[in-house]
């Protein structure tokens, strides 16, 4: 069966500008072909996933204010069903990485990413999150979040306007539409990976789970609980 064009209801396909990456991927998918049952199921799953992306409230600096604007009356990303911002990383689907990430924050962001449940996506908002931005010359800035975690969509701007953020969200929705749940092995790497090799990444995750979260230092739980 022919793989369909990626179509999302929220925005016309021709309104998207940079499409080479997704087009090429679509070609690749078509060359392989898919089973009709599987593809129908995949369509259903992707429909659900791309229409219900719950962001984690994560904002370090300026772009966070534009993110707030996005949730408020004028831009209202509730229209697309994205407004269920979860504060717990376990329940969120996407990290809106709004703002500069510095050395001290880097491990925290990485841990947040590790704490999230699959499928999880990352969007880098603003020049700082993309590549250091105006703070390129600083001694304490991480030059882009993709040095720490893989990024799906980059939205440039300093800070990006809420409209640009919505555009980025739509791109992410399209990207999710191309995912395959049932034919995982064939799936190419959708997101750019950071420097760590898979083995060490796995080890990292174990470590994170062993070293209990800052918020649940178990020693104190026991003490606090018995009081």
């Amino acid at each position: 069966m022919e793989v369909k064009d990626i179509f999302i209801r929220n925005m016309k396909t021709e309104d998207f500008n940079e499409n080479e990456y997704l087009d090429e991927y679509l070609k690749e998918l078509r060359a392989n072909g898919v089973n009709i049952v599987i593809s129908k199921l995949d369509d259903l799953i992707n429909w659900g996933r791309s229409n219900s992306v719950w962001p984690l409230t994560f904002a370090t600096s300026c772009c966070g204010i534009e993110f707030m604007c996005l949730g408020a009356a004028r831009y209202d990303f509730a229209r697309f069903g994205w407004e269920v911002t979860r504060n717990s990383p376990r329940q969120a689907d996407v990290v809106f990485c709004c703002g500069t990430i510095v050395h001290k924050m880097a491990p925290v962001l990485k841990r947040l990413y590790d704490q999230m449940a699959e499928p999880k996506y990352v969007m880098a908002f603003g020049s700082c999150a993309i590549g250091g931005g105006p703070f390129k010359k600083s001694y304490h800035t991480v030059m882009g979040v993709d040095q720490i975690i893989p990024v799906d969509v980059y939205v440039p701007g300093c800070p990006p306007r809420p409209d640009a953020m919505i555009y980025g969200m739509m791109q992410l929705a399209r990207k999710i539409k191309l995912q395959e749940f049932f034919s995982l092995p064939k799936q190419p790497e959708l997101s750019r990976h950071c420097g760590t090799d898979p083995q060490s990444a796995e080890k990292e995750i174990n470590n994170v789970q062993e070293v209990a979260d800052q918020a649940h230092n178990d020693k104190n739980i026991e003490k606090g609980g018995s009081e």
Binding site: T60, S61, C62, G99, T100, V102, K104, M105, V108, P134, F135, K137, S138, Y139, H140, T141
Partner: peptide, 24 residues
């Protein structure tokens, strides 16, 4: 957790260049 070293960066920027850091 968001220390970006603005004061040190200012020392490497000319006066008009360092203006934009204050907005941020």
């Amino acid at each position: 957790y968001i220390h970006r070293g603005i004061e040190k960066m200012c020392e490497a920027y000319t006066y008009p260049q360092m203006l934009h850091l204050t907005d941020r």
